[in-house]
Amino acid sequence: MADLVLGIETSCDETSAALIDITEGRPSLRSLVILSQDVHRIFGGVVPELASREHVKTLDPVVTRALADAGVTARDISAIAVTAGPGLIGALLVGVMYAKGLALNLGVPMIGVHHHEGHLFAPSFEDPEFGPPFVALLVSGGHTMLLDVPAWGEYRLLGETLDDAAGEAFDKVGTLLGLTYPAGAAVEKLAATGNSERYRFPRPLLKDQFDFSFSGLKTAVLRAVRASTDLERDRADLARGFQDAALDVLVEKTTRAARAMDRRRVAIVGGVACNRTLADRMRARLTDAVVSVASPRLNTDNAAMIAAAGAWHLARGERSDWHLEPFDWRPMPGLVRAAGTTA
């Protein structure tokens, strides 16, 4: 039987478990369960203590469901990969301690996985050709970075956000427009009906090399919202103006990076990769490259990507020991700042 890796992800407000096979060196998805914690909508953002409590209640049932969906039992698991960070420390702790308990119970190896590295593996499940070298745009509610990936385990940071993450900007603008948290999908839907000519917001750092900044854009939208005399009338146009500005920056810098690194493949990963307009515009612009975007379930925080990244490390003989602790922030293993890019 092929190696069966259990992935566990609890870094924020999704409780997720997945089982993947490793066949001929490539990950194959056997099951994926993602439980979104809806309680945070009430607060307009994630409440860490509530997230941790929810993970305690739901992680084992989520693992049970993932095992059932894959048609296997816990005794069939060959190894466990768990998100160790970055993320909410209390939320991560639940996944890490559960993984330690289960690994000791089953007598199988365990590895802690960097959440960002997990996102990079997400397109592997649906695109058999996917793999390095490629340029990755990692965009989520917590992160925005451009990476050159010459090989798995080698990550060259080309640029990153200097303030807000792109997904955070989508959520905050969504809130300004009266949309429910998390607002990324709703902003895209609203923008689709908006007039692109009414609001022309700044494209921050567009002429700079690869770093991003979204706080100024967010403030510009805030000013426009305050200046609006009929927000209900203007909402769609504001959403369109914001999204056009944000996506222009993401597409332009990613295009520039792919050309500078001479890459013929670009991956868009992370929660904002669920924005289909972003993928469409990237493909329209990067006609000389393949643009890989996983389906939404694999772009949101999920355990399948953690299992895939963990399986790659496990195949190299890497293991975490029982002292493994979650971390709120740490650079991805193998990450270096690319020479010639700004800090």
Partner: peptide
């Protein structure tokens, strides 16, 4: 302590599963 409670709770869930 909330965090301490979860350290043991999460570990026990994994350790005792299907046993």
């Amino acid at each position: 302590g909330f965090t301490g409670l979860r350290v043991a709770a999460a570990w026990i869930k994994g350790f005792s599963r299907d046993r």
